[in-house]
């Protein structure tokens, strides 16, 4: 780890002022950034601790939530309104990492979690375009069992590791951002980028921009929602595939649906095609399968991860089936 300075921001404005200096990074819980600094994947000259940002979870009158960026993962997962109105979010957070890490991690930081691609982590010994643009990618022809099946590019086949973000993608969340040039709000599904030619850029954040809050719109159908994570060990492992889903069925017909996938792409993958294919269809296994297939039609698996296509298909069908069954 290279030497760096450390300061605590009193609030968002203070953080943005401190963060204006090149080479500065914002520090939340540190559960990913400290690890990446130790691995040499990040080498900031200054850290600005932003855990003094809002830790409020504000319940809106319409049923939506405004969540301060410094809210810890555990606090969000255990919040009564989240458990009742957005159970998929609670479950997604609780499916991630370990209790210790969830106690540390902030939701703002979680959005900026970086990939677990082992070639990305091995900066000294492997080529990685995410670490060093133009260097090449050793994962494409290497061990890529955990890698992307959707939206990858010849430059990068890494996946986004967050569980929480998959639920947020499904829930139409938006991300509140502040920077020197002012405030803006970005839909969560547009915060993270696909790799294209610039896999070093995980998100659309400009230098110095700070995530201050996440907004969840009221979404009544989310009260019947869930998150299913498929992984190699029973706990404390990253997803091979995960599915966040909410389903509203009326008289046997899908009235509305939200669906997102984790572990399959460079970003949390909102399954727009599947959703579109499902609305107005009978809530049947056939329809669920057709929707899954529509979403996965463009999947392009690598040497070791073809199983993910089938796994994603099956998991989508099972999760939607469970939600439909629970609603009957």
């Amino acid at each position: 780890m290279n030497p760096f300075s450390y300061s605590r921001a009193a609030g968002a404005a203070d953080a943005i002022r401190l963060g204006a200096v090149a080479g500065t990074k914002y520090l939340g819980g540190g559960t990913n950034l400290v690890d990446l600094m130790r691995e040499g994947a990040e080498h900031p000259e200054a850290l600005v601790d932003v855990t003094a940002l809002s830790r409020e979870i504000e319940e809106r009158e319409d049923g939506g939530l405004m969540i301060g960026a410094a809210v810890r993962n555990t606090a969000l997962a255990e919040h009564r309104a989240v458990r009742q109105r957005y159970p998929m979010l609670s479950r997604a957070i609780l499916a991630g990492a370990s209790a210790q890490i969830r106690n540390m991690a902030t939701i703002g930081g979680n959005l900026l979690q970086r990939t677990r691609c082992t070639y990305f982590y091995d900066g000294e010994g492997s080529r990685c375009n995410k670490r060093e643009p133009g260097q090449g990618c050793d994962a494409i022809d290497g061990f890529n069992r955990n890698h992307a099946i959707l939206g990858a590019s010849p430059a990068c086949v890494a996946t986004h590791p967050s569980d929480m973000c998959v639920a947020l993608a499904a829930l139409d969340a938006s991300v509140h951002i502040e920077g020197r040039s002012g405030k803006r709000s970005v839909p969560l599904v547009e915060l993270h980028r696909l790799p294209d030619g610039r896999p070093d850029l995980d998100t659309v954040l400009e230098p110095g921009e700070l995530i201050t809050a996440i907004e969840l719109p009221a979404l009544p159908l989310a009260s019947r929602s869930t998150y299913r994570k498929v992984r190699d060990r029973a706990s404390y492992a990253f997803a091979l595939v995960s599915v966040a889903a909410a389903l509203e069925v009326e008289s046997g017909t899908v009235k509305d649906v939200r669906l997102a996938l984790g572990g399959v792409a460079h970003k949390p993958w909102r399954a727009w095609r599947a959703e579109e294919a499902l609305r107005g269809q009978p809530a049947s296994e056939d329809a669920f399968r057709a929707a899954a297939e529509a979403e996965l039609a463009d999947a392009s698996p690598l040497k070791d991860n073809a199983f993910k296509v089938e796994l994603a298909r099956r998991t989508i069908v099972a999760v939607l089936g469970d939600l439909a069954g629970a609603g009957r």
Binding site: T118, Y119, D122, G125, S126, D138, D141, G142, F143
Partner: peptide
């Protein structure tokens, strides 16, 4: 995990 291209342990 042993990468036979480089001889490097990858995990």
């Amino acid at each position: 995990v042993f990468d036979e291209r480089s001889g490097r342990i990858m995990n």
